[in-house]
Design a protein around this nucleic acid. Structure first.
Lengths: 152, 152
DNA sequence: AGCCTAACATTGGACGGGCTAACGTTAGAG
DNA sequence: CTCTAACGTTAGCCCGTCCAATGTTAGGCT
């Protein structure tokens, strides 16, 4: 059991996830909040649909998460005048600060997570994981993004 | 986002998990089934409590999972004559075959998961993950196992 | 103009893995 | 003989992921 790559990966991820969830949970946030704020700041305001594509968060989950962020005043939801189907999501000033706060916490957690590894090893691990991840994203990721026209 | 170790780890784990879940799901099994059968064959029959400690599966989840395995005739649940609090879990012959079936599937999936990596890189990844995992297991694992008397 | 398809936002639900809390039973130590 | 602790079970929560169905709006095709 303890040498199966899939086991190692998922179990280590459990710990990583717990660290992050605890770190964010301590200030009343969770992963989705961070992901969304990040994406909004990095790539600008967007409709919920495009936001979902950018972050990989399901549309149905976006609704609730944005409700939370909106309730706390971190994002604004305004109907797109050019296309009334869309809600344009923007980050407020408070959201900017919130993003910085969460980013700092998440950043600090990386160190805790990789504590037993030195800088070189960390880089190697990141590189290896990156390759595996990209490989599988290329198989299922884009397909999911273009879901409707996937088959063609 | 795409360089944070915790992100890489959890996202890659999502893919790994999906591969395993699909592979096992195709024959009506899931991760817990495999874990339990493995542990029972490797380390022998055990009570549910010790089984939980060995596999890291929560006692409350064990109940249902063992119900499933028992219903399919893969394990037997018999009260321990020496300690009537305990249920001794044993693997049936069908369970042995089932374990082999699941092991084969899981084994095959490792290749799919690590496809973009050569043998050397796979070994390195496994080694790095193993170290990180052990590090965190030593911090939270035993504490969880000894939960009741943890503080003392 | 009209229709029909597709994109959009939303709701309600499911699932798997991990967890907590509570309860009754049984062992075993004091 | 009592009191503590381990055991099994049930019920339920959380987070992240995903599916199905609904109603609305845009836009292409005819």
């Amino acid at each position: 059991m303890d040498h199966l790559p899939s086991w190692l990966l998922t179990q280590t991820a459990v710990h990583a996830h717990r660290l992050v969830a605890d770190g964010l949970g301590a200030v009343g946030a969770r992963g989705y909040h961070y992901r969304l704020l990040r994406s909004l700041l990095a790539d600008g305001p967007a409709s919920q649909a495009t936001l979902g594509r950018r972050t990989g968060i399901h549309l149905s989950d976006l609704v609730g998460t944005l409700n939370e962020l909106e309730a706390d005043g971190y994002v604004g939801r305004s109907p797109d005048p050019a296309d009334r189907r869309r809600n344009v999501i923007t980050v407020t000033e408070a959201g900017r600060e919130r993003a910085a706060e969460l980013a700092a916490r998440v950043e600090g957690i990386q160190d805790e997570l990789l504590e037993p590894l030195d800088a070189d090893e960390r880089a190697r691990l990141v590189a290896l994981l990156g390759r595996v991840l990209r490989h599988h994203q290329d198989r299922t990721g884009p397909a999911a993004a273009l879901r409707p026209g996937a088959g063609s």
